[in-house]
Measured scan of single mutants.
Amino acid sequence: MDALKSAGRALIRSPSLAKQSWGGGGRHRKLPENWTDTRETLLEGMLFSLKYLGMTLVEQPKGEELSAAAIKRIVATAKASGKKLQKVTLKVSPRGIILTDNLTNQLIENVSIYRISYCTADKMHDKVFAYIAQSQHNQSLECHAFLCTKRKMAQAVTLTVAQAFKVAFEFWQVSKEEKEKRDKASQEGGDVLGARQDCTPPLKSLVATGNLLDLEETAKAPLSTVSANTTNMDEVPRPQALSGSSVVWELDDGLDEAFSRLAQSRTNPQVLDTGLTAQDMHYAQCLSPVDWDKPDSSGTEQDDLFSF
């Protein structure tokens, strides 16, 4: 819950932080000083300027060897085509990944977070970031790969997607708890209302004896509580940590079903599988986004697919 609360507080303090972009060759504004600060901008989305290598189908939802083989196929196909790589912007948030063309600003792909089953910074092609997700059109699994400016960037994108998945799962947990509370309150309110109706004398007997209905007592009954809980029953509950912020979080049926399955089948359902080692994760978390744009010590960066 700490990640969720800190993310909400950060967004309320400075929503404009989320509009910064990394990996864009110096076009961005001043960047936060450390990885923790940038992680807090996830709610509205972190932007990464990358190059799209392509996509291939895979048979399993996750796995280092599986993704490595898929990336190898994608890279080989991209090299064989001889075409310049498409420059894209990857927007990562707890909602998922939005992929747009840098030149036309046209939407290429919009992947809900619950469809993503794996992401990684490839070991062999260490400047490549990739994720595996279920197609929104059918049940097939797709591996999408992107060329980053350097290994640090690939690791940073991988960690960002993993963190977005974690925050999304926490949102789901909060929403589920809130819905259970509202359902319980609604049920209790309905029981109270039913009890009051059972003990209320029939209207005919009131008229016969000349008694008047006590409207004041009726007004004191917990009807307002019942209506408050039943009027918006169809509205999706939102985490309290975000009250007053500009973010509107809505959970669709697909996300609810997917996270429910994860909660039942996995020990740590909030953790998205990645190909990063503990050492890689520690190294990337210690980086400032400013470091992502620094040239690798191995030599001059080449803006070309064939540089790796």
Rank of each mutant, 00 (worst) to 15 (best):
I98Q: 00
G190Y: 02
A168E: 02
Q285Y: 04
L242S: 04
G194P: 05
N268K: 07
A145W: 08
L223S: 03
V128P: 03
S14G: 10
H28A: 15
I12P: 04
A258T: 00
V271H: 02
F306P: 01
L66C: 09
W292A: 00
D214A: 01
C286T: 14
K72M: 10
T100F: 08
Q134M: 12
Y131K: 05
D291C: 07
E44D: 12
G54I: 05
K294M: 00
S21L: 12
I132H: 12
A70K: 08
S298D: 02
A156Q: 01
L57K: 02
F306M: 03
P15T: 00
S16T: 01
S67F: 08
V88K: 12
A7T: 09
L85A: 00
A68R: 03
D234T: 09
N34A: 13
A76I: 06
P239M: 09
A78M: 06
E177K: 11
P15N: 08
T41M: 14
W35Y: 07
W292D: 03
G244P: 05
H282R: 14
D291I: 06
L212P: 12
A221W: 07
P32E: 15
W22G: 02
L251K: 01
R115L: 04
G210Q: 04
T230R: 08
P32N: 14
T56I: 04
A195R: 06
D293M: 06
P94F: 10
E142R: 10
L272N: 06
E109C: 14
R266K: 02
N229S: 03
S205A: 09
Q240L: 11
K30Y: 10
T41A: 08
D296C: 03
Y52G: 14
S14C: 06
A76R: 10
D191M: 04
P295G: 10
D191T: 10
D122Y: 11
S93Y: 15
M124C: 09
L215D: 03
G8F: 01
A10P: 09
R29K: 04
S117D: 05
A7M: 11
T149G: 07
I71S: 10
D2G: 04
A221K: 05
E170A: 15
L50P: 15
A284V: 14
L255N: 07
L47K: 08
T231M: 06
T277V: 08
T89K: 02
D296Q: 00
A70I: 05
S175V: 06
A18L: 03
V58H: 12
G23V: 05
L203D: 13
G45I: 11
H144N: 15
G26E: 11
K123N: 11
Q139A: 14
L50E: 05
K51Q: 01
G25Q: 06
F48R: 10
L305E: 09
A284M: 06
L99P: 14
G26A: 05
G299I: 01
K166N: 13
G299Y: 07
P269F: 01
Q86W: 13
M124K: 11
L206Y: 06
A156L: 08
A208T: 09
T89D: 14
Q106K: 13
L141C: 10
L215N: 15
D183K: 11
G189C: 05
T36C: 12
A221H: 00
T267N: 12
P295W: 06
K72Y: 15
K83G: 07
E170R: 09
E217I: 03
D234S: 09
V88N: 01
L212M: 10
D273C: 08
E109S: 02
R266T: 02
G190D: 03
K127P: 11
K204V: 14
A284T: 13
H28I: 15
K79Q: 04
D293Y: 15
E177D: 10
Q155S: 14
A10W: 01
H28T: 11
E301Y: 11
L215I: 15
R9K: 02
R29D: 06
S14R: 15
P269C: 02
F259H: 04
L90D: 14
W35T: 15
W249Y: 03
N110D: 10
R115C: 10
K83I: 12
M281I: 03
D291R: 14
W22K: 09
K79P: 05
S93F: 04
K51R: 12
S49W: 10
T158V: 15
F165P: 01
L99G: 15
S224A: 03
K176Y: 06
I71F: 14
K184F: 05
T218C: 06
L141F: 04
L103Q: 07
N229K: 09
K91N: 15
K179R: 11
N268C: 01
G299D: 06
I74C: 13
T277P: 08
T160V: 12
D273V: 08
F171P: 00
I116Q: 04
G26L: 09
S67P: 13
I97A: 14
E59T: 10
K19E: 10
S298E: 06
A154I: 00
D122N: 14
S81C: 02
V157R: 00
T41F: 12
G190R: 05
K184V: 08
R13E: 06
A156V: 03
V92W: 11
M124F: 11
D280L: 11
G54L: 03
R238L: 14
E170N: 05
E235I: 04
K91E: 12
E59M: 11
S135I: 08
V88I: 14
